[in-house]
Design a protein around this nucleic acid. Structure first.
Lengths: 209, 209
DNA sequence: TAAGTTTTGTGATAAATGTTACTTATACAG
DNA sequence: CTGTATAAGTAACATTTATCACAAAACTTA
């Protein structure tokens, strides 16, 4: 089942030899919504490829406050902790399942071998870095050039795309944590959006109009 | 002369075959302080390797306001616009010479060939991505978790390291542009640092104590 | 040497965000 | 069905940052 998903999602990225090898070596893992997949400072022994679901990548400050950097989606380039590509031992980010997700975990040792021996893996790694790099640039832009209301609205639009639904189930507190701000600020801005007919609010639920 | 620098800076990173080839194909360019090396939306046809000097990498918002993302230094991994590694046609960042710098420009076509044929180049590219990725994470942390005074102080410390001098020649307006804030805010914070005996101020000059 | 220009510092005010407290509404558990 | 817990909205106030205006000091140019 998982191997089937692997083929389905990656057959246009990896050559068949590599897919077979990944299928043999990799371990399928499933995570429920809100499960921590990788934690900060956790030793990295696997490269996870996302088969289904989606994942949010977070940074943490010295006081334990978090910030969402970007979301990962299935089927797309989904190297999560890019430090693992280099065999660096500990994660600098936290990966949390945004919804129920399944991944195939590949032992890190193979990464280097494939990197030298397999052209499709090399291209995949390079493309993953590039995609992540672009998303980091976007995260920097959001923080440096946007006010909180703009960041919030963009966040809501991203959630809608991710869940392919105009209604997102989320608490104001959760949004505040992702955006590294206070719950009151988020409640105020959301109310303002409602007054501007951009969204409709209910408890635990936001509908983007 | 430039070829000598190339050997000196990169002989422990690249194998000899690659260094020779870079020396043959590459064009040495020199830039003066404040020269624009790569501009935003500029078509990318070369991969620049930094031989000497240092460079600052900037983002720009829709109104033309800039933000410093990170500095590049010579001899270290110095892939500047990582998009060029993928043959992406236009730059998303602006690269400006922080001090007089020299670079060797490699036509982009070779990048892909070497990437598949040369292990030392592959390792170099991978390591460059990783280094830049770490610096982007740091830029995100600075923006999300730090107040302007902390960012400013860190900026000053970085400048000191870059120029290997406790005295940096810079205008308040330039700092304000790098940190994407207003000149008045920077002048006030610097004055406060002086009052706290962290720095000593003169016109066009700051000495870190 | 004087005039002009540039840089810096300060004051006043505004806007954005953060924090604390509290009330109200809604969902959940027994 | 009721009590409790949780989530959301609002008020008041504080802090940080941004903007505008202007004066003073220092540097440059003629």
């Amino acid at each position: 089942m998982g191997k089937k998903l692997l083929y389905q999602k990656f057959n246009h990225i990896f050559d068949e030899v590599l897919i077979d090898e990944i299928g043999k070596i990799g371990t399928i893992s499933t995570f429920s919504k809100d499960d921590i997949i990788i934690d900060i400072n956790q030793p990295l022994q696997y490269i996870p490829l996302l088969l289904s679901g989606n994942i949010k990548i977070l940074r943490e400050d010295n006081d334990g406050n978090e910030l969402l950097i970007y979301f990962l989606e299935a089927g797309e380039t989904c190297t999560m902790s890019l430090t693992c590509c280099m065999g660096t031992s500990r994660s600098k980010i936290r990966a949390v399942a945004e919804k129920d997700s399944s991944l195939i975990m590949i032992p890190v040792q193979n990464m280097q071998t494939w990197f030298h021996n397999n052209e499709s893996w090399r291209n995949f790694i390079l493309e993953s870095y590039q995609t992540r790099f672009d998303e980091m640039l976007e995260a920097i832009d959001n923080l440096a050039f946007m006010k909180m209301d703009e960041r919030l609205y963009k966040y809501l639009i991203n959630k809608v795309k991710l869940h392919t639904s105009n209604i997102i189930i989320v608490k104001h507190q959760d949004i505040a944590e992702d955006l590294h701000t206070s719950r009151v600020v988020i409640s105020r801005l959301l109310k303002q959006f409602e007054n501007e007919n951009k969204i409709k609010l209910s408890r635990n639920k936001i509908e983007i109009l």
